[in-house]
Simulated assay, not measured.
Amino acid sequence: MAEATSVDTGQPPVRDGTPSQGMPGATRAPVTRGRTTIADGVVEKVAAMAARETPGIYALGGGTRSMGSVRGMVPGGRTSATRGVNVEVGERQTAIDLTLVTEYGLSIAEAAAEARENVIAAVERMTGLEVVEVNIAVTDVHLPDEENEEAAVGRVH
């Protein structure tokens, strides 16, 4: 059987997960070589985006007639990207509370269930945290004719 020979290529040694002499820590898995923490705001943003991408979800946060929607119309006012999302983040798990406005005419239960599935999948995939629960409060239903009313309210006379 032929023996492997070592050739100096001038390149640093490749770490393929196999133990190697002279490489400190080469036998330790990368996950044991430090700690990753994920801020609440990161989980909130991921959850908010996943919920907004769900068909049948009109908005996050209170109803469209709430002060939050008026704040977005005031010059210099901004609505928060995570309005309507609250999270508790632990070392390995997270719990999420969502406040939603659904579209009129669709099943609220189905829209909420789909939003829950989307949020769980996105948060677990992107953060590695286990989502232990997603509580959803539907606080309003968006009616098709409300868009005309909202536009009239936002108009300067």
Score class of each variant (00 low, 15 high):
4 A>G: 03
5 T>L: 13
8 D>Q: 01
8 D>N: 06
11 Q>W: 11
15 R>E: 08
16 D>L: 09
19 P>V: 09
19 P>C: 02
21 Q>A: 14
21 Q>T: 12
22 G>H: 03
23 M>L: 14
25 G>T: 07
25 G>W: 10
25 G>M: 06
25 G>Y: 11
25 G>E: 04
26 A>N: 13
28 R>C: 06
29 A>V: 04
32 T>R: 01
32 T>D: 12
33 R>E: 05
35 R>L: 10
35 R>M: 09
36 T>C: 06
36 T>Q: 10
36 T>E: 07
38 I>H: 03
39 A>F: 00
40 D>G: 04
42 V>N: 05
43 V>M: 10
44 E>Q: 14
44 E>H: 00
45 K>R: 15
46 V>K: 04
47 A>F: 07
47 A>R: 05
52 R>Q: 13
52 R>S: 11
58 Y>N: 05
58 Y>D: 04
58 Y>L: 01
60 L>N: 01
63 G>Y: 08
63 G>V: 08
67 M>C: 09
68 G>A: 14
72 G>E: 14
73 M>P: 03
75 P>Q: 08
75 P>E: 11
75 P>W: 05
78 R>I: 06
78 R>E: 09
82 T>I: 15
82 T>D: 05
83 R>H: 07
85 V>Y: 06
87 V>Q: 06
88 E>W: 13
90 G>F: 02
91 E>K: 12
91 E>R: 14
93 Q>T: 15
95 A>T: 09
97 D>H: 12
98 L>P: 01
101 V>T: 15
104 Y>I: 03
104 Y>K: 09
105 G>K: 03
106 L>Q: 13
106 L>W: 02
108 I>F: 07
108 I>A: 11
108 I>W: 07
110 E>D: 15
111 A>K: 03
113 A>T: 05
115 A>S: 11
116 R>S: 08
116 R>Q: 15
117 E>G: 06
120 I>N: 02
122 A>N: 07
125 R>G: 03
125 R>V: 02
125 R>C: 02
131 V>P: 02
131 V>W: 00
132 V>H: 01
133 E>L: 03
134 V>C: 02
135 N>H: 11
136 I>M: 00
136 I>D: 00
138 V>T: 14
138 V>W: 02
138 V>A: 01
138 V>F: 05
139 T>Q: 12
142 H>E: 15
144 P>N: 10
146 E>W: 06
150 E>T: 04
150 E>S: 11
152 A>Q: 14
154 G>E: 09
156 V>Q: 13
